[in-house]
């Protein structure tokens, strides 16, 4: 077996896992506290990528663009909360799913109207374009290391925010008993809006980080959102810890499955059978894992405490 490849693919898996975590954490926060299913969360990811790509071309600097795009994505999240989401908190999940499905159509078309049908590539500054030699002969693009570092720092920040700040305390309290929190005199409307904006910024950040690799394109959010759903189903909807572990698990399984499943299959079946079945199985792998987890634990691995 090729251990250098295994190392690189593990790193890629962690990178995908951390990006998934950024999307899934916002999704799970919004669901945990607001009891709101936001299908359009992927569109916020897409808008993050587009705003950042556009600003990079305007400002000529990717880092400044990210710093400016983050609050802008947050504002977009606030607008969505103000104009639509808040009217749906008390509705059932079916209504929320349908309305946010409509919102996807609206946001995707808006992006099409503003930036045109083609994607926008994002040029990176020179120091991010190089490669870093990790150990003898194994090189990794430095931007991928930046993605991993940003993901880990954001995860640590969220952990601190949720567990050690007043806002985090309110978030946890809101997740376990919403009515009680507002009865205690907390401005629940503002809290909800803040959480929604935070979720939008997290998804937007993931979009900004992926844009230099894949470019910003219409509909890019519609693939990752499903995987993010799988992540929070496995982790337990509403649980930050579950989102983190689930995201890394899915990121690693998906990436490693795609590159090594055929080798694995060859151990116990003829090699041509392995080569035909491996791509199909690896494409379905994360869903098979999800089904297995749910068959054993229908509430996911780390279900949040009873509300």
């Amino acid at each position: 077996m090729d251990y250098d490849l295994l190392f690189i693919q593990t790193l890629n898996g962690i990178q995908l896992g951390l990006l998934l975590f950024l999307v899934a954490s916002g999704l799970t926060l919004v669901f945990g506290i607001l009891d709101f299913v936001n299908l359009a969360h992927g569109s916020l990811y897409m808008f993050g990528a587009f705003i950042c790509a556009w600003l990079t071309l305007q400002l000529g600097n990717f880092i400044y663009a990210v710093l400016l795009a983050l609050p802008l994505t947050g504002l977009l999240g606030l607008a969505v909360e103000r104009l639509m989401a808040r009217y749906l908190y008390t509705r059932d999940h079916l209504d929320q799913v349908l309305a946010t499905f409509g919102l996807i159509l609206v946001l995707d078309t808006l992006a099409h109207l503003i930036w045109g049908p083609a994607g926008i590539a994002v040029p990176l500054p020179g120091w991010l374009r190089g490669q870093v030699e990790v150990f003898n002969g194994v090189v990794v693009p430095s931007f991928r290391l930046l993605i991993i570092a940003t993901g880990l720092v954001t995860a640590a920040f969220l952990f601190w925010l949720v567990n050690y700040t007043r806002l985090g305390m309110l978030i946890r309290a809101g997740a376990s008993n919403r009515t009680m929190v507002s009865a205690l005199g907390i401005d629940i409307q503002t809290l909800f809006a803040l959480v929604f904006a935070l979720g939008a910024m997290l998804a937007g950040l993931a979009g900004m980080l992926i844009a230099p690799i894949t470019e910003a394109s219409i509909g890019m959010g519609n693939n990752i959102i499903i995987t993010a759903f799988v992540v929070i189903i496995i982790g337990g909807i509403g649980s930050m810890k579950g989102a983190f572990i689930g995201a890394l698990l899915i990121g690693l399984i998906d990436t490693l499955g795609r590159s090594f499943l055929d080798d694995l299959f060859k151990l116990f079946m003829p090699s041509d059978a392995a080569e035909t079945s491996a791509p199909a199985v690896s494409a379905m792998l994360i869903y098979i894992i999800m089904a297995m987890v749910l068959a054993i634990r229908p509430q996911g691995l780390f279900p949040p405490k009873v509300r």
């Binding site: 639509m84 349908l98 309305a99 499905f101 409509g102 919102l103 996807i104 159509l105 609206v106 078309t109 808006l110 109207l113």
Partner: peptide, 8 residues
């Protein structure tokens, strides 16, 4: 765009 708005 109008279709999505209609859905909402």
């Amino acid at each position: 765009l109008p279709f999505g708005l209609l859905l909402i």
